[in-house]
Structure formats: C-alpha cells, structure tokens
Design a protein around this nucleic acid. Sequence first.
DNA 1: TGTACATCAGTGAACGCGCGTTCACTGATGTAC
DNA 2: TGTACATCAGTGAACGCGCGTTCACTGATGTAC
Lengths: 210, 210
Amino acid sequence: MPSTSTSPNRRRSRRAEGSDRRETRELLLDAALAVFERERFAGYTVHAVVAESGISLGSLYHHFGSMDGLSAALYGRCMARLLEAVADAAEAARGARAVIVAIVRSYLAFVARERAAAMFIHAAPSAAFLSEHATAIAAEKAPRLERIAAAVRPHVRSGAIVAMPEPLLEMLLIGPVAEVTRRWLAGAPGIDLDEAATLLPERIWRSVRA
Amino acid sequence: MPSTSTSPNRRRSRRAEGSDRRETRELLLDAALAVFERERFAGYTVHAVVAESGISLGSLYHHFGSMDGLSAALYGRCMARLLEAVADAAEAARGARAVIVAIVRSYLAFVARERAAAMFIHAAPSAAFLSEHATAIAAEKAPRLERIAAAVRPHVRSGAIVAMPEPLLEMLLIGPVAEVTRRWLAGAPGIDLDEAATLLPERIWRSVRA
DNA sequence: TGTACATCAGTGAACGCGCGTTCACTGATGTAC
DNA sequence: TGTACATCAGTGAACGCGCGTTCACTGATGTAC
C-alpha cells in the first residue's frame, strides 16, 4: 500500500508529466489484477481495488465508468497479452508441426509467466461483465485471433493439417492447454506446466495432422 | 410458480408421504438450477431460488445450512450425473478406440441433454462455494472418476493407448470436449454439438493412441 | 389408552453488512480575447 | 500580457439497494411411560 504522503504528490504532478491519464488507468488495472489474484471473485470489489491502488474511487469511475467497465478493460488487456504472445510464436515458426508446437508452448509459457492474468482470463467467462461489453472485447480479440489463424491456415491448405471447421480445430489445439491451465491454476495435484509443455505438443500435433 | 393455495396442502402432507425430506431438497436444487440457467450468476440468489421453488427461505436453510451449501450440493448432483453417464458409456465400450469414442460422445450427449447442469458444472469453478466444500465434493467425484480411469487403464497397459501421466491423458480427452461445451454454452457462433460429436472422437483418439 | 415431551420440516418478517454508484467538490492546465 | 472561462483528472463522504442470514415461531409426527 502506498504511504499517505505520496498521494498528494502524485496528484499534484499528474498533468505535468503528460502521460498520466494512461498511467492512472494502468495503475488501476494492475491493482485490480492484484486483488483478483489474492482474493478471487470473493474479494474483488471496487473498494478493494481503490485501496490496493491508492487512487480514489471517483477517479476509477472517471476512467472506467463502472466496475464492470474496469473488469472488461482488464480482461481485454490480459487477453491481448496472451493472444499476442501466441501469435508472435506462431508467426515465427516454420512448418506445420512447428506452428502447432509453438502455439501450445507459448500459451503454457504465458500462463507460467503471467499467472494472475491467466487466472483472470480463465475465470472471467462466468462473470457478467463479459457479455455486457461483448462487442468491444470481441473487437479487441479479433485481429489477434486472425494472426494465429493466418499462421495455421497455409498448412491446412497444403494438406499437412486436417481440414475441418476452424472452431473445432481451435478446440483441439486450445482445449487440452486451457484445461491444463485451469487445473494448474486451481492448484490441482499432479499437474505440472513443464511436464505439460514437454508431453502435450506432440500429442496435440497428432490430433490435428492430416 | 406454484399457486399460494397449494403451499399449505404440501406442507400438511409432508410427513405423511415419508419421502418428503428428499423431495424438498430436490425441489430446491431443481429451482436453483432453473434460476441459474435463466439468470446466470447475476440473478442466482437465495431469494430467487426460494421464489422459484415456492418453498420457504427457512426451509432452504434447514436443509442446506447456507446458500453455498445449496450450491455445493447442486454442483455435486450435476457432476455426479455427468460422470455417471460417461462412466456407463466407457464401461460398456469394448476396445481402446471404442472407450475413447464413448467417453467423448457421452460427454457431449450429456451437455446436449442436460444443458442447465452442464452450464452449472462449467461455471462453478470460479465461484467460492467449491473451495469451501472441496473435500465433500472431491469425495463425491472420486469413485465416478475412478470408474472412468479403470475403463481406460487396461488399454494403456496393453499398449494401445499412450503411457503418460493420467492427469495429462485426461486433459487430452476432456480438454477439447470441455472447451467445445464452454463455447457452445456461451452461444459462440460456429459451434455445433452434433458436428463436434462426429469429428472430435477420431481426432482425440489419434492424440492418445500409442 | 392417554398424556407429555422431543424431534423435525417448514415459515417469513426482519436485520445488518457490503456492495456499486453518485455527486458536489478541488485544483491544475489549456484556450480565447 | 493579463483575465475569464472551459476542460479534465482526481477526491471521498454519503447513499440506497439487495444480498445472505437469523430467529422466534407453527404444526405434524414419533417416543416414553
């Protein structure tokens, strides 16, 4: 928690620095993610986020309009980071098998690296804010998903990867990885991310190769 | 909603019928599931369950102790139904490939048949009640999971299915199915359960065969 | 058999807490003339 | 250049609603003697 004495200083210097609008938003999103990681949905409240960030309640509403608005923005930021990590890896890989392996490994690496973000991404679908901001979130996800799809598509066309509806292909790729992630995040025994990163790619490759 | 006049009648006849304790519990669980299906977590409250069931608030607390207690009982009932449907199918199948196909198809058939139960099962992990009643729920799940594991294990020993840690094998089997289910329940476009039941089993089989 | 008591399912008004949200405000900076 | 006004980030006390929970109660049935 920031000391009380830093608060007036930060407030006074906001405009002078020039990038404060962004900074305050980021601080609030960081705080929200920290609260969620510590408390899950049970303690994930506006007041907790405000206390964690040291930024005022009014300021949170000024920037995000509502608690759901903040949650949606946080989800968008977390999801963008995950999808970009996966898209980067997929685009860098050469060959059908390498693309599949890269997608699986980069997803699991993201989960290990950004545990809190992964938690929020996987817990969010059962919350209300997603459907209320669905179009904005879909718009943010679409271009990143398209990058990944574009990295896979040539290998479907070339016959190296099985031709089937893209959503089902996605399920074969992402399903086992997402499920491992969920279990690992829930602290299930016998789930190890490194082991998964070693054993799953080959198995998932076998499920999608032609 | 039951009419006001039936309430005293039911109340009076409770003990006479002998199986009322069970009946009231079941009515409350049915009502809770109906509320959840209609409103998701947003409208899933004790008062909504009480209004839906026509049974009093005090009676709900008499039987379940708390709202979390009711939710945990509902989760246990839904999960038991799913796991039993899958275990029945797995035990009836002969041969490694048939067991895998049976597991995938019976899971998807359950989701199509008991949509509300599937919704609750897949949404519950991000709620608080699960971790608070974790041991009771684990005890209810364990024997059913063991039935399924026992149907798969001989084929791992015989070399027909790849030898790998059981949790990871489970992820390969259940991951794509669970992900398809989540998307379908969320109303995602391009996800069709029948199509999944046709195309996924063969692909999942390829991912786990030796 | 009758009486007294215990047990159990069920009832619903009332309570208090914590949540998301509102709003009147301050002060710094940008803009017009 | 100085003055007046607009804009914007930020503040935090206060509010009201809805939630889970409590509790004193009724009435039917089972049990003891």
